[in-house]
Design a protein around this nucleic acid. Structure first.
Length: 476
RNA sequence: GGGCUCGUGGCUUAGUCAGGAUAUAGCACUGGCCUUCUAAGCCAGUGGUCAGGGGUUCGAAUCCCCUCGGGCCCGCCA
């Protein structure tokens, strides 16, 4: 599962938040379904953006770095300034192009410089991800494929194919032959893979990377913005040419003998006033959203708890705030556009993570008060379950039973949002049960039976939340 | 110009792939419920020609065709 893969040139904004959250959640779902999943971040340290940032860090000395912040926020000012310099001065552009040229031709010093800068920025991004409970099994650097010769091998194979066309010293593939099955026509069917100065282009390096990926797994999942739809097809066709094997279309993607490539696309997140843009300042950074969510959550905790320490309130606020952010993003079907609104992102009521977390905390609270430990082999559960006859009990049991079906549905369709809906259904069913069926005041076997149901609910809610990458609190 | 995608109450959204009975929730709004296991909760109510039109079908939000509207892509950027 490849996800996030944002250029490490600055902090991630909310417009990019869908990628890691969808990727991480689907990875968790697939693990739940029994797949062996490995996640990775494909970091671009070869492209123009990376070169621009590196040039700026080396050259510009008058940038005021913000203090008390993460590396990604410290560096973004350089990136913004470099873009302005580039527009005003042709020589800047040339210097950056020269840096790229040296990288592409294996200049170890130049490559190392860019990688160092990107690594600093990536460090900040990874910290944000960690806060969202998102980690990576592997970071794959784009430059590795230049250094190990994979990119030039891809270029050679493409050049020697009958699809290659030369134009003013540059090369592109004519993909018209694939037009029918891939629905690419006209200009879309021309994809350049080498510049006239001999350097490679992004699709070329992406082909090398995908070749590497399908040698390492059976299914290569890839979370991409909808702007990458055409590019994704071009990579698959490129691989068809290189492997001399037509990719066959399957439900979730394309397959070769070696393995499948399955892109998962999502639409962009915009602000009510339009598209986010770091340069214009019309942007909400994920870090700021998480901070604000925590502040809001802390207010709510203070309103209702006076019996716990500041430290515990802070912990609860953090897990409620980050949970709310993850839930708000994962609840919407990936291919529907999203408009970011603070009021939705910070909603802690119905249709939110805190609603589900609260139900879990309530269940745990009952179990604590009852001194309930865990399942006991001495107990006749079949008999106990026959005592659960109340409408609310039956409805809750039926709801809990759906968990495997929901995981299966999400797995088959490579989607995560049904799990968010399911979380609401379970929490809602439990809240109704909670309101109408007394557990602790029940007598004898009835009480025992209800405690088991509460325990089952807590287990399912914790399972759902864990799969959503959200913490299930013992108390709130 | 070509291709992809979305369009469900005031707002957000499920259901669309595998067509079935009064279309799912949430937010907002109105009115109730804390001497009961945490009210981040529960109950009741208002609100929808499922973008529009045509077709297939005993039956369409769902399948097919057309139209309209939003988004995205078609670069020797990534």
């Amino acid at each position: 599962m490849e996800h996030t893969s944002a250029n490490p040139t600055g902090p991630l904004h909310v417009g990019r938040a869908r990628n890691p959250i969808i990727g991480d959640t689907i990875a968790r779902i697939l693990k739940k379904a029994g797949y062996d999943v490995s996640t990775e971040y494909y970091a671009d340290d070869m492209g123009k953006q990376a070169a621009i940032l590196t040039w700026a860090v080396e050259t510009l000395k008058d940038i005021r770095e913000p203090e008390n912040t993460k590396e990604d926020h410290r560096l973004v000012g350089y990136y913004q300034a470099a873009n302005r310099h580039m527009e005003e001065d042709e020589r800047v552009k040339e210097e950056i192009e020269d840096l790229l040229y040296r990288c592409e031709h294996g200049d170890a010093g130049a490559l190392q410089k860019i990688k160092d800068t990107c690594q600093r920025s990536l460090q900040g991004i990874l910290e944000t991800m960690e806060r969202l409970n998102i980690g990576y099994d592997r970071i794959t650097w784009e430059s590795d494929f230049v250094l190990n010769g994979d990119v030039s091998a891809v270029v050679d194979m493409l050049k020697s194919s009958r699809y290659a066309v030369e134009e003013d010293g540059a090369y592109y593939l004519n993909l018209e032959e694939f037009a029918g099955e891939f629905k690419i026509h006209g200009r879309s069917a021309r994809v350049f893979f080498q510049r006239n100065d001999g350097t490679s282009l992004y699709p070329t390096r992406d082909m090398a990377y995908h070749l590497d990926k399908i040698n390492r797994c059976d299914i290569a999942l890839n979370i991409l913005g909808e702007d990458h739809k055409l590019q994704s097809k071009q990579v698959v066709i490129g691989l068809s040419i290189i492997l001399n094997e037509r990719a066959r279309a399957e439900k979730n993607g394309w397959c070769f003998e070696k393995g499948c490539i399955e892109p998962i696309f999502y639409s962009f997140v915009t602000l009510p006033e339009g598209k986010m843009s770091t340069r214009s300042g019309r942007v909400v950074f994920i870090d700021d959203l998480l901070d604000e969510a925590k502040i809001r959550a802390l207010d709510e905790v203070r309103k209702r708890r006076t019996d716990i320490s500041e430290g515990e309130m802070d912990d609860i606020a953090e897990l409620v705030g980050t949970g709310a952010v993850r839930y708000n993003i994962i609840r919407v079907q990936a291919d529907k556009k999203m408009v970011f609104r603070w009021e939705d992102a910070l909603n802690f009521e119905g249709g939110s993570a805190p609603f589900v977390q609260y139900s879990h905390a309530r269940a745990k609270s009952i179990l604590r008060k009852a001194g309930y430990a865990s399942l006991d082999s001495e107990v006749d559960y079949k008999h106990l379950s026959s005592l659960l006859k109340d409408e609310a009990e039956i409805a809750l049991i039926k709801e809990l039973n759906r968990f495997p079906d929901v995981i299966r549905d999400c797995t088959n369709g490579r989607k995560a949002h049904p799990l968010a809906s399911y979380a609401q259904s379970v929490a809602s069913a439990f809240n109704q049960f909670y309101r109408y069926v007394p557990v602790l005041r029940g007598n004898g076997e009835e009480r025992a039976a209800r405690l088991v149901l509460v325990d089952a609910t807590a287990i399912v809610l914790a399972g759902i939340l864990d799969t959503l990458g959200i913490v299930a609190p013992e108390r709130m």
